[in-house]
């Protein structure tokens, strides 16, 4: 009886700790979202109000009316197109690395090390190159860079997923007279569908969330939402309503897509090291 009660108490304590920790990690997100629904008077009320009197969407309306929300559209175009390219090229390369051991471990390691170079060191020479090629502030320029930057990730992840599927199926398809390309389309891709999907989501999220590349390589035309958020920071007064509304516009899509990807999340963010 005593033991049971102690166990009960322990569980309650653990639950309390879990709730406190989760509250700590969620509170800033709550604060960000909540500000976007406040009126200016509520935002600049002292002491700060923890919830708005009523939900109102004026802050969002302003963003759409002024065209600021177009930057979210730019993010969408750039992130999705570069994801398609990176997935296509990267998966083919990954298949070759996984099945034929092309280039051995050295090539694979070189590829993943490309991913680890700090973006600022990558983007600086690219910027000089783009000035010369007149690619600054264009979709093409940004898409090309995101494709290249995400390629190592796609190759690395897809190599892992392809290694997971049994070779025998491909061999029997070959014996049945399929060409190598047919094997790819009809056996390999369908078999690693889940992996393809998960990797594409993460590739998309990386491009979507990027700030430094977009900061350097865009001016006005293809500016992404992350760059737009920083435009609202002023020396003395910050446009709080706009900061929060724009951030929410950029964050909600991520929450939705990642919500579907729970099962692959750990593998995705650990570069495939943990096969959750």
């Amino acid at each position: 009886m005593n033991l049971r009660r102690r166990r009960r108490l322990k569980l309650v304590l653990r639950l309390a700790a879990a709730i406190a920790i989760t509250a700590f990690f969620l509170f800033p997100i709550y604060w960000l979202f909540m500000i976007s629904f406040k009126t200016p008077e509520e935002i600049f009320a002292f002491p700060p109000k923890w919830w708005p009197a009523q939900l109102q969407f004026d802050n969002y309306q302003v963003l759409f009316k002024d065209g600021d929300a177009n930057t979210v559209g730019n993010s969408l175009v750039v992130a999705s197109v570069s994801t398609v390219f990176a997935m296509f090229l990267g998966t083919l390369c990954a298949y070759s690395l996984a099945r034929f051991r092309t280039g051995g471990e050295n090539l694979a390691n070189w590829i993943i090390s490309q991913r680890m170079v700090p973006p600022i060191a990558v983007v600086f020479p690219i910027f000089l190159l783009y000035v010369w090629l007149k690619l600054v502030d264009t979709y093409v320029g940004l898409i090309l860079l995101y494709t290249a930057f995400n390629l190592p990730y796609v190759i690395w992840m897809m190599r892992g997923y392809i290694n997971d599927i049994p070779k025998a199926l491909e061999e029997s398809a070959l014996v049945d007279g399929c060409t190598r390309w047919q094997v790819l389309w009809k056996v390999v891709f369908p078999m690693c569908r889940a992996g393809l999907f998960a990797t594409a989501i993460f590739t998309f999220v990386f491009a979507w969330n990027d700030f430094i590349f977009a900061l350097v390589l865009t001016r006005t035309e293809v500016s992404t939402y992350t760059v737009q958020v920083t435009h609202y920071f002023g020396g003395q007064s910050n446009f709080w309503a706009k900061i929060s509304a724009m951030s929410v516009l950029g964050t909600v899509p991520i929450f939705i897509v990642v919500g579907f990807m729970q099962r692959y999340l750990v593998r995705g963010i650990s570069l495939g090291a943990v096969k959750g």
Binding site: I29, V205, F211, T226, T251, I254, F255, Q262
Partner: peptide
Amino acid sequence: VLPVVISPIVAGAT
């Protein structure tokens, strides 16, 4: 999980 997937610039703004 949510903090991890937010853009770092948005996290900073928050």
